[in-house]
Design a protein around this nucleic acid. Sequence first.
DNA 1: GGCCTACTGCAACTTGTTCGCAATAGCGTG
DNA 2: CACGCTATTGCGAACAAGTTGCAGTAGGCC
Lengths: 148, 148
Amino acid sequence: MAPRAYAVAVDFEFELRSHGHRVTTARRVVWDVLSATGEHLTAPAITSRVHVVDPSINGASVYRALTLFAELGLVRESRYEDASTWEPFHDDAAIHLVCSECSRVIHHDTELVPRLRRAIQVATDFAPDEIDVRVLGRCGHCPAESWT
Amino acid sequence: MAPRAYAVAVDFEFELRSHGHRVTTARRVVWDVLSATGEHLTAPAITSRVHVVDPSINGASVYRALTLFAELGLVRESRYEDASTWEPFHDDAAIHLVCSECSRVIHHDTELVPRLRRAIQVATDFAPDEIDVRVLGRCGHCPAESWT
DNA sequence: GGCCTACTGCAACTTGTTCGCAATAGCGTG
DNA sequence: CACGCTATTGCGAACAAGTTGCAGTAGGCC
């Protein structure tokens, strides 16, 4: 499946400037990488894609950019893999189907997530904020035969 | 809230032996720590609790024990925090309510999880295996006033 | 009690992530 | 459009989590 390019409605530069941050080359390249793939990427993976565009951008700056973006709510950090993965922000009605074969992460929208939120509010004294659903399994492109 | 001690129905030694593994001091202590708390613990946290009982047990052995337990399905690994956390196995109808204030992890059973599994099977070509739901929020013991 | 070998402890290593600091480059201003 | 203030960067060093190879140790079958 072609990586789904996110329809990025977010005005990245405006978000930065309106919070008093500068629009720099490093930040722009990191943002481009993220919004171009729309996939879950580890920080090292992002760094290497960034280096394709501009090898002079340091890995530390990639981390700093990601951290900043996360604070601004532009990206979302997950910890599905060995390292953190990052993706452009989407609301959490979209759950993650993680293929244990090819590591692809598929997004799937379901009304069960908002329902789950309500169920928690009703049944517990826990105040839910962010809901993160990960489903491990096998995607349609990885037939059972292809075991490693 | 007192940490919930799991009713560990699993015969730990039998599980090991029946798969051709030896019952060693290191493995027993790690198992004791895990089943005594029933909480999500990071590997370093487990190691330090292990060291209270027996400081001569090496950290590497803790990792090796955890990995083995996971292979045998005795424990479950999550990646909610900065590092992996481990807990005795429970089936995945129990979702995790993670308090962003006190880091406590509360288990909550809901029939929405099996329903979610069915919904995925019906709506997609993804074959779900393990479902992992994390809800970030604030638990009943952490009132809104106690911001850091 | 003794033997075989699965396990362990150790220490060095890999990899992901962070930090301090001097140099650099956004961007508001004149 | 040049200038200056200071937020950001690149760099290298430092951390921390987790892994691995190896020689020594200790389960458990006889």
